[in-house]
Computed example of a mutant assay.
Amino acid sequence: MERAVGEITGIRKGCVAVFGGGDPRSGTERIVVMAETKERDPVRRADLERSIHALAETHLGAPIDQVALCPPHTVLKTSSGKIRRAANREQFERGLDTSRVRSPRLTLSLITLHALLRTLGERLRTLPRTLYSGYVWLLFLLLGLPLWLGVLLLPGRRMRWRLARMAARGFAGLSGIALHVERAGKPGDETPGVIAANHASYIDGLALTAALPGPLCFVVKDELRTNPVLRPLLQRLGCEFVSRGDKRAVAADVERLKRRAAAGETLLFFPEGTFVAQPGLLPFRMGAFVTAAMGQLPLTPVTVNGSRAILPAEHWSPRRGRLLIVVGEPLRATSADWQGAVELRGRCREMIQTALEE
């Protein structure tokens, strides 16, 4: 019967439910045909009802009690497409509105409105983060430009470093980033030598500048020498540019770094050399550990926590967060050779991994 009704022109195929239901007025059983149609013309709808009644008498040999023409997507089905007769009977008995047929134009308008409201809701949910991100970058420019000019103009490196540390601390405070430092020893007990820190974000340098006493000599990749904005800033702050491919250039870099450390400067390395969005540590390069081992210098492991959550790799929309800098106990190589450097790297990595909150 359902299939036959679905073949009537104007009735949607596969969208017909025939079920029995009790009549609350007479207390008897009645047969109902519930069929979906797009027809809105009353005359045409009346013709459809007559056609269904006639078809029912032919198939069932008896008249049906009621035809309920309803809009598309009213007849309930299972996930496999089968008619849910009990559920359709229940919604019919609750008082199905069989007269309302939504026009295609109205349906499209409602779908469009729903999509617009959903998009607006998503924009409103992300608005605070967007505003915060814009504020942080504006703050970065407002502090960065005076810092850049000040570093270029101030005569002494200690004065330049003091200005850089003041700007880094001010940036963290004004941007709502909580900065905490945990030290294995007392503040001021730091020994000049080598610092090896994990690298998780663009803001690691800023965090360490704000957290550690200076001046520090950041050891940075040679590619930054070609950056017209960063090169003069890094040079005036006393950073060292090192090669990462040519063995002879690397050897010369190590000797130069050893001389600076022997002169009482503190060298700061990021042994990973780069950073990614995924949490955890990348393999450590040997530069920091060869410098410390060959120069018989103390090496201090430093762990930066929280920077990846604030500004991950390949993202330019910072978030509020907490930075925790963990300064470990200084380590010394067991021997002033390659084996000593390898062993030192292993101990340093283990200490950073232990303090890392990722």
Score class of each variant (00 low, 15 high):
110 L>H: 04
116 L>H: 09
106 L>P: 00
118 R>F: 09
141 L>Q: 05
143 L>S: 02
168 A>E: 07
113 L>Y: 08
149 L>E: 10
145 L>P: 00
157 R>Y: 04
106 L>Q: 10
134 G>P: 02
130 T>E: 10
124 L>C: 12
111 I>V: 07
137 W>P: 05
105 R>E: 15
120 L>V: 02
122 E>P: 00
147 L>A: 11
111 I>Q: 08
159 M>D: 14
145 L>C: 00
168 A>Q: 08
104 P>I: 04
104 P>K: 05
112 T>G: 09
110 L>D: 07
129 R>C: 02
132 Y>K: 04
124 L>A: 14
138 L>W: 15
135 Y>L: 04
130 T>K: 09
122 E>H: 11
133 S>F: 00
146 P>A: 06
151 V>H: 05
148 W>L: 15
160 R>N: 14
134 G>E: 06
126 T>L: 10
134 G>M: 07
169 R>V: 08
108 L>V: 01
158 R>N: 15
116 L>D: 07
137 W>S: 05
141 L>R: 08
117 L>T: 08
127 L>S: 12
138 L>M: 15
152 L>D: 02
143 L>M: 08
155 P>H: 04
149 L>C: 13
111 I>E: 08
159 M>Y: 09
151 V>G: 06
115 A>L: 13
118 R>H: 06
113 L>V: 13
121 G>V: 14
155 P>G: 03
148 W>C: 12
107 T>W: 02
125 R>H: 12
134 G>D: 05
167 A>M: 07
133 S>I: 00
119 T>F: 10
161 W>E: 02
156 G>S: 15
148 W>S: 15
127 L>C: 10
169 R>K: 12
112 T>D: 02
144 G>T: 03
128 P>G: 07
111 I>Y: 00
163 L>E: 00
159 M>C: 14
104 P>M: 05
121 G>M: 13
162 R>Y: 10
151 V>C: 07
156 G>H: 15
131 L>Q: 01
151 V>F: 03
131 L>D: 00
155 P>K: 01
131 L>V: 10
156 G>R: 15
131 L>E: 01
107 T>N: 02
160 R>H: 13
144 G>V: 01
127 L>D: 10
136 V>F: 10
169 R>A: 07
139 L>F: 03
147 L>T: 08
106 L>Y: 03
165 R>S: 14
153 L>A: 14
155 P>W: 03
135 Y>C: 00
138 L>D: 13
119 T>L: 15
137 W>V: 04
151 V>I: 12
136 V>G: 03
119 T>Y: 10
131 L>T: 04
136 V>Y: 03
118 R>V: 12
120 L>N: 01
163 L>Y: 00
125 R>A: 13
122 E>D: 11
123 R>V: 11
110 L>T: 03
138 L>P: 11
